[in-house]
Amino acid sequence: MSTASEMNSQVKIQVTDLHKSFGSNNVLQGIDLEIREGEVLCVIGPSGSGKSTLLRCLNKLEDITSGTVVVDGFDVTDPKVDINEVRRHVGMVFQHFNLFPHMSVAENIMLAPVELKKMNRTEARAKALELLERVGLKEKADARPASLSGGQKQRVAIARALAMSPGIMLFDEATSALDPEMVGEVLQVIKELADSGMTMVLVTHEMGFAREVADRVVFMADGVVCEQGKPEDLFGNPQQARTQDFLSKVL
C-alpha cells in the first residue's frame, strides 16, 4: 500500500485523546489514532496494556471517560448519536465467540437483519447461507452452536458479524480461546476478509499473522500507543525499548 493511496483514502475511525478509567484504574491514558478505509490495523502489546479496552471503545461497548471516537463521521461520545445505528456498520468478533446458544447457526446470523427490519426471513436466510459458504460452514446452518468445534464457532461468529454488511470489523483476540489446531482455519477466514478490502482492527497475540496481514501495527503499553508503523519496520527494527523488550519475549 503506497503512501499516496493512504493519503487519498477516507478516514473511517478517528480517535482523539481517548481516556478510559475503571474507578481509579486509568486503563487508557490519551490515545490518538486514525484508521483509513481498507486499512488492516493490528494492535499488539502485553496484557493489561489496554488493547481490548481500546477496541471496545470503538463501538462504545465501554463508556468513554473523555476524548472522542468518530466512526464513519459519527462521534460515538455524542449522546445525540444513535449508537445502535453506528454499531450496525461495525462488526465485532469476540474471544469467546458469544454465539447465542438457543438459536441455530443460521438464526444467529439472521437475528440482526430480521430484527432490525433490513430483510425478511427468506432474504436473511439466503444471506446467512451465503455468509456460511464464505466461511466454509454452509452444511452447519441448522446445527446448534453447542455441536460445533471452537474454530467452527468462531467462523460462525465472523459470519454473524458480517450479516449487517459492516464497513468496519473489530476482532478482539479472536483466536486466543482456540485449540492450536483450530487457529489456522480462523486466521484463513480473517485473511480472506482482509484481502477483500475490509477496514479491520485486530487485537491479537498472533505476531506472525499480524506481520502477514497488517498494513500497520500499533504497539500499546500502559494505556498509551508506544510505537506504530508498518509491520516490517515495527517487527524488524523497533525503536522503543518497551517494544524491543516485548518483542524479545514473544517472538
Binding site: 461497548l61 453506528v86 462488526g91 469467546h96 458469544n98 447465542f100 430484527e115 432490525l116 449487517m164
Partner: peptide, 18 residues
C-alpha cells in the same frame, strides 16, 4: 446469563430491550 451474550447482541446494533 454470560454478559458476553448481551454484548454480542448490542454489538450487532440491537437496542437494550430487543
Amino acid at each position: 446469563v454470560d454478559p458476553g451474550q448481551l454484548e454480542a447482541a448490542r454489538s450487532l446494533g440491537l437496542g437494550y430491550g430487543k
